[in-house]
Amino acid sequence: MFVATDDLRYRTSLFNSVVAPRPIGWVSTLGPDGIANLAPFSYFNGVSATPPMVMFANNAPEDRAEKDTLANVRLSGEFCVNLATYDLREAMNATSAAVPRSVDEFRLAGLTPAPCELVRCARVAESPVSLECRLMRIVDFPPLRPQDRASAAVFGQVIAVHVADDYLDAAGHFDVLKAQPIARLGGFQYLRVTELFELRRPAKPTRGAGAS
């Protein structure tokens, strides 16, 4: 089957189903009015280890020029990414609702805002991991066609990490199986991490290896 990218089937399900699973960036910010904002982004990932960087991207909503998260990051230059886990799936989903800017999503979802150390916005106290981030760059993409919406990719440097002690093993490694992070698939589908396996990188071949 061949599907062009302007085909509705591609835009609404195929792309999101193929490029999956995608980690969820549960991003908290602080508005200029002092109202906390919390929203999940299914286009999120780590970008670099040195310096440690993450990114999230979104399309402009239909009812305003850009999402409150993006507007807040532009003004404040900072944000926090909280790990969305299986136990927090309902709260995460509640914060995806399209609500007025005056609504505090922490309160809406029954979550506890905890203070960050180096940025002014709050983090999700119930989340086992939170990444405090300083804005590095926003890349704005204008719509390619009149019916499309603008999009933006936000890149941030991770400047501090909060990890709940009971999610660290004896060696100090993060217990992914205990946390069970969730990821986004196509449509309304998600998955959770329940199994791990290892693949060791092949050793560097010696000169002449494999020659007959």
Rank of each mutant, 00 (worst) to 15 (best):
F188M: 13
T85D: 04
E90A: 09
S96Q: 08
V129S: 01
A39L: 02
N59Y: 15
L83N: 05
E62I: 15
L75V: 09
R120M: 11
A179H: 04
E195S: 02
A49P: 14
Q189H: 12
E90S: 07
Y190V: 00
F188C: 11
R107Y: 11
M55C: 13
N59E: 15
N45G: 15
Y43N: 13
A36V: 11
P23T: 06
T69C: 06
F41C: 07
A114N: 12
V3H: 13
A209N: 13
E117W: 10
Y190F: 08
G186F: 04
V154Y: 01
E195L: 03
P52L: 10
P113T: 14
T95Y: 03
L108N: 09
G156R: 02
L135I: 08
L8R: 10
S151E: 07
T95I: 07
H173T: 14
G187V: 02
S48M: 12
V161D: 12
W26T: 02
I35N: 03
V99H: 03
P52I: 07
A36Y: 13
G172V: 11
A98Q: 13
V3G: 10
T29C: 04
L118P: 05
P143C: 01
A109N: 04
A179Y: 02
L135D: 05
V18L: 11
F44K: 05
F56I: 08
A179L: 03
S76K: 09
F79P: 00
L38T: 03
D87Q: 09
A97C: 10
A171D: 15
T50I: 14
M92S: 00
T85M: 06
N16Y: 08
F106H: 04
F44V: 08
A179V: 01
S127D: 01
F106P: 06
S96T: 09
F41E: 06
K178G: 03
F79K: 00
L14N: 05
R123T: 11
F41L: 09
V158T: 04
Y167S: 08
Y86P: 06
A122E: 11
A209E: 15
S28C: 05
R9L: 03
R22M: 07
F197T: 11
T5P: 15
F79T: 02
V163C: 11
R137K: 15
Y190H: 04
L191C: 13
D87M: 09
L75E: 12
F106K: 07
G77S: 03
V158C: 03
R64A: 12
N82Q: 05
K204V: 15
V139E: 08
